[in-house]
Amino acid sequence: MVNFVEANTRQVQIFAKSETQFFYKFLHFIATSVRERRLNGDRGRAYIKEMLHVILFYGQINLPIIKPEEILTENFQTFLQKYPDVFQECKTHLPTRPPYTVLLDAIVEIKGTRNAEDVLRCLLDLTDKMDVTNDEGKQCGNVLVSTVISCCNFNDVTTNYFGASVSCMGWKQRKAMINILCCKTWHKDISWAVCVGNTYNEKAFTFPAGVCSMAFNIYSSAKATEQKQRIERAKARLQRFQMIRSRNIANILEPFGTLVPREPCKYCFIMFPDICFDPSSHSHNAGKWEYGNCAECESLSQLLYSDENIVQRLKRETFTKTPEVLLNEKYNQLKEYLEKLNFNFGNRILYYNNQA
């Protein structure tokens, strides 16, 4: 690891350190939860395997490749012997979720609640511990930590569904992960909404009344200190909007870092114009990434998976290209990006199964 870091650019150094720090802090969180009987052993093993796989996969699609032994700086041989399928299949099988989404899901299960305050407090506390230090001794955040967190609900503020923006390094890698989420992970209607946004720049369907969504920029303590002036400007700008719930959550969580209420970007508002966003305004930030990058897609997907009644009440639009055609285009795009990243997926795309 030392030689690897010394031989590569600062950006690659930070990415490699981010992977190492993220995995070991996650491992400690899961192991502690199992030991305290807040999570059973089989579920803990499944989470560890999934996280290890996606982090090693990220190393495989990085340019240059970051090898497993350059990420696992402690007990490499132990992990290799315990989870041999992970080390083999990180080179041939795709993950189904980014690392921060896996962490968020584990927190919800371990905490046993969908209360936004409880979940986000734990998430921000763990995020604070994942900061990495560059070769100059300066804390600089963690590449695998998402920049935005979202939670949504349907007529019940105590039952929230959470999502994170896509976290990885490099635009090709990011596009590949968005395509994975569309093709494999998200509810088919959210995948379709992303495809319709990409192709037609329009909404795919209308939600029934009662769907609400909150989003936050998330900062660890180190990043919050670095971004202090920017954060204060953002808070001052949002004071004129109705955001009582989101402001209260942000204030409660500030001792652990900072959550700054965030308006939906232009792309989210195009896809989901009928949702009650908090905060919201008549002017929306231009989409910096492509459709599907934002945290709202993940949280709304979980909401649809949870309630078939909402799915049945969606008012779908009609387009020249069917959902099947649009998703097939996404699948072909995924193969193209994997080829550009020199990932050998063989004759067909396979996904890693952490239950094996």
Score class of each variant (00 low, 15 high):
126 L>S: 03
148 V>F: 02
124 L>I: 09
136 E>V: 11
158 T>R: 10
27 L>V: 05
256 F>C: 12
326 L>E: 06
129 K>C: 12
72 L>N: 01
311 V>P: 07
143 V>A: 07
55 I>D: 00
244 I>Q: 14
155 N>R: 15
277 F>S: 02
274 D>K: 05
334 L>H: 01
297 C>G: 06
251 N>D: 13
90 C>E: 01
331 Y>N: 14
200 Y>P: 01
228 K>L: 13
114 R>P: 04
324 E>P: 07
320 T>P: 03
43 R>P: 05
287 G>D: 02
244 I>E: 15
65 I>H: 13
100 Y>A: 02
312 Q>Y: 08
224 A>I: 04
71 I>K: 02
95 P>Q: 10
298 E>H: 10
47 Y>H: 06
145 V>W: 00
225 T>S: 14
107 I>T: 06
154 F>Q: 05
198 N>P: 06
155 N>L: 14
337 Y>H: 10
75 N>C: 07
86 V>G: 01
203 K>H: 11
270 I>G: 08
249 I>T: 04
173 Q>A: 15
317 E>S: 03
227 Q>Y: 14
220 S>M: 09
56 L>P: 00
294 C>D: 02
126 L>A: 11
18 S>F: 06
247 R>G: 12
141 G>W: 02
154 F>K: 01
259 L>A: 11
230 R>Q: 12
128 D>R: 11
287 G>T: 01
199 T>C: 08
180 I>Y: 01
252 I>G: 07
330 K>N: 08
190 I>L: 09
237 R>F: 15
233 R>W: 08
70 E>P: 10
26 F>L: 14
158 T>A: 12
354 N>T: 08
25 K>F: 06
178 I>M: 02
208 P>Q: 11
3 N>F: 09
186 W>I: 04
344 N>Q: 09
249 I>M: 09
33 S>H: 06
353 N>L: 06
178 I>E: 00
310 I>T: 08
253 L>M: 12
266 K>N: 04
346 G>M: 02
228 K>E: 15
4 F>Y: 15
105 D>I: 10
20 T>Y: 11
139 Q>V: 05
293 N>E: 13
275 I>R: 00
248 N>P: 03
